[in-house]
Every structure is written in structure tokens, then in C-alpha cells.
Write a protein that binds this DNA or RNA. Structure first.
Lengths: 217, 217
DNA sequence: AACTGTGAAGGGCTTCACAGCG
DNA sequence: CGCTGTGAAGCCCTTCACAGTT
């Protein structure tokens, strides 16, 4: 099949498949059918086959998918066969939590530097990573071959932070600020909006729900 | 129009509209057209009109929407005209960051209690909120009229934590654990998956991208 | 016999285009 | 005249159902 454009919902599911395959590998399973994987992921098996078919023919008819081979393929497809370096803008609670979580590099991403404007924070460390003055953002990003940036600054500062990140040549950005941001042509901006997620729960509680549960039991 | 079932993408956009209206109110704007709001949100104006039309006729033809009135309506629709109490399961970096951020209750949500199994943490405070023994989850939730729970525990413990939360009668849950979870019939489970978001960036960098930017400039 | 890969159907969300109204 | 509210079209994603393969 090999579709021309892969949608984001598809790549997000690939991440999920990879994680489930890691579990299966740990359990010692050698092969898995789309039906079984679908049960684990709470998805339709055709969905899984279609997603995988975008990238090649990984399965064996009558048998299923070889766990190790599919795992390796998904890693390659997602670009996870090497560690990516991250810079975090904002050394507040959230930025620090992320720095801590991704400090080791064991999760495929390694935080190389955290940035802040607060002089009392600069020079300290979070999760073993140094906090730098945001003025040095560009030079440190370039020196460290950093490819991914996280926006963990207050909403008011988010747009200018984004522009600084883009100016430093970074093209992949994860944003936690709850504001609409405008990114350039060749930049991928993913926003994680906790307030929206919570407000969505509030709406559900208000009664309009029994809405869309993720994985009905 | 008043659709029977409101989709999650719609309610998520309502959150966004509300936030933008707050900004407009702060600026002192009295009314706003769907076109103008669309520009601010980087959306199509028909989208906005359709979303709002699900809940009533809030606009004035030829004029637009009155900022204050629409703000009040959106708050009511989203159930944000009162503060919701939250319990956080897991007093790690993430749980603590969230407790800190939502401690005051000024954002429409108030963290009332944080829970952990680690005895060295129990009794301490994060963001002014006490960390309790997870054994007391149900009783504290009931005593505190807590309606929303956050899962901020390691992946391995997520499913059992979810079941504990459900057993305590909570029906609205925000999950940060990167595993497929199975929730009951009348429970709303929203998952925020940071690893998937990052892996999606990795895929983009791999070259398959120029994919879907959120807000092309 | 079992399971993958896929054309076709189905369903939902977004955008267009314009009727309707202030 | 200007902007909302909305039927219809368009597009995309998911699911079905089965042909194809080992």
C-alpha cells in the first residue's frame, strides 16, 4: 500500500504498537497476530494491519507478525534507532519533571539542556542536567546537536519562545503552553494541553457525557 | 442545531475558545466575530459557528458574539462555573508538578490530595497539598468530594490504580501512564501520552514529515 | 486452515456556500 | 450590508469482508 502521507493518528498508533511489542518480547513471545495485538491495544485488527501496510509487508499470512522483526521495523520507521537530544525551555515544575524523566536517555530521548530566564536557577541542575541562561539557547543547541525542543514556559512567553526555538534551527517542538501558537512551514509543533484535557473531564461530569470512553471494558 | 452527541474534538475546541475569549475580555473587547476568533485560534470560522451551534444560538447576525455572554455560556457548558476537586495518584516528579500547578484552585481545578505508596513521602506536602497513603484513597476521596483523579504512577501500576480509582466512585480520570488501559462503562478516561508525542516528533524528523503542522503560518 | 493485505462501504468531521436575519 | 446558522459537499479515518498467500 505505502500511502504517500501518513497521518498523525497512524504514527501515534505505531508508538503504541511498539510499546506493546516490547512487552510481548519481554514475555518471550515470538510472533503475534493482528487480532491478538488488537486485543492488547483495544483496537480493531484491520486498523493495525492497515497501519502497518503503509510501510511494507511485515506479516506472514497464516501466521502473523514476528515480534522482534516488527519491533525493529517500527523503531526504524519512527526514527527511534538512535537517541534524540532535547532542550527544554522553562525550568519550572513541569520542565524540571520532564528533565528528570528523560535525563538518562534510556527512553530514546535525552535532555541535554534546560533553559530559564530566572538568574537564581541558572547554573543549577535538574535530573543531572544543567540549567542555562536562555540567552545562550541557540549556541548551546547548535553545540549539542539538539533536534527537539520542549516549551514549558508560561503562556505569555510561549510565542516568543517558539520563535527563538525556530530561529535556532529546531524543527520538532513539543508545547505545553495552553495557547494557540503559530509555527513556520517546516516545523512540527505538537501541543499537549492539560487544561483542555481536564476541562473535557469537567464537561463529561456535567452530564453531557457517557461520551467517548477510550477503551470500553 | 443542538446535536445529540458532542464529540471530544468539539469540547476541546470549546476550551480553546473560552481561553481566547478570556484574553479578549482582558483586552476590553466587547464583541467578536467568528472570523476574528478563527484567526486567533488558527481555525476555520465555520468550524467555530458549528461548534457553538451545538449548544444554542449565541450570536447576533450582522454583529458577532458578545464576549462576556459567550464566555459565561462556555463556562456553563463546560461545567467550569464551579471548582472541581482533584486527587493525584503518584507523588513522583509529574504528580508533584501537577499538584503544584493546580494547588491554588485558581484554574478551575483544585488538587485536594496526592497519594503514594512510598512511606518516606507520605505525610509530606507538595504545593501545599498533603501526600497520603494510597491505602486511604477511597475514604479521602469520599470525604473530600473529589470527582477527578489523575494517574501519575509508573506504567506497571497504572491498571490497578485505575481500578482503585473507579472503585472509589470517580468517573473522570486523566491518565499519564503510557499503556492501554481498560475503563468501565460510565468512566471517562483521557490519556496524555508524552512518549507518543515525542516519538511522533522523531518520525517527523526522520523525513516522512512536513506532516501536519498545527497552525501553518 | 489461518491470518495478512486491501478494495469498498460506512461514518464522522471539516469546509464550502448561501439562506436567513438583524 | 454583515455576520450568523446550516444543508450539502468533500475529505479523511475506521471498519467490514474477502481475496490472496503460506
Amino acid at each position: 500500500m505505502r500511502a504517500e502521507r501518513i497521518s498523525e493518528v497512524t504514527t501515534n498508533r505505531l508508538s503504541l504498537y511498539l510499546r506493546c511489542l516490547n512487552e510481548l518480547a519481554l514475555k518471550g513471545d515470538v510472533s503475534v497476530s493482528s487480532e491478538e495485538l488488537a486485543r492488547i491495544c483495544f483496537l480493531n485488527s484491520a486498523q493495525i494491519r492497515k497501519d502497518l501496510a503503509c510501510f511494507g509487508e511485515f506479516g506472514v499470512r497464516g501466521v502473523g507478525y514476528e515480534v522482534e522483526a516488527l519491533r525493529a521495523n517500527l523503531k526504524r520507521i519512527l526514527g527511534l534507532n538512535r537517541v534524540h537530544s532535547i532542550a527544554i525551555a522553562g525550568a519550572g515544575r513541569l520542565g524540571s519533571a520532564l528533565a528528570d524523566y528523560y535525563a538518562g536517555g534510556g527512553r530514546g530521548f535525552q535532555v541535554k539542556a534546560v533553559f530559564d530566564i530566572d538568574e537564581t536557577k541558572i547554573g543549577r541542575k535538574v535530573g543531572g542536567v544543567e540549567i542555562f541562561d536562555v540567552k545562550n539557547f541557540s549556541s548551546i543547541v547548535k553545540k549539542g546537536n539538539i533536534e527537539v525542543a520542549v516549551i514549558a514556559v508560561p503562556a505569555e512567553a510561549a510565542q516568543e519562545t517558539l520563535e527563538m526555538i525556530e530561529a535556532a534551527g529546531i524543527r520538532a517542538i513539543l508545547n505545553f503552553a495552553p495557547v494557540p501558537l503559530s509555527a513556520g512551514e517546516n516545523v512540527k509543533l505538537n501541543t499537549v494541553d492539560l487544561s483542555t484535557s481536564l476541562e473535557n473531564l469537567s464537561f463529561y461530569l456535567k452530564g453531557n457525557g457517557n461520551g467517548s470512553r477510550v477503551h470500553p471494558r
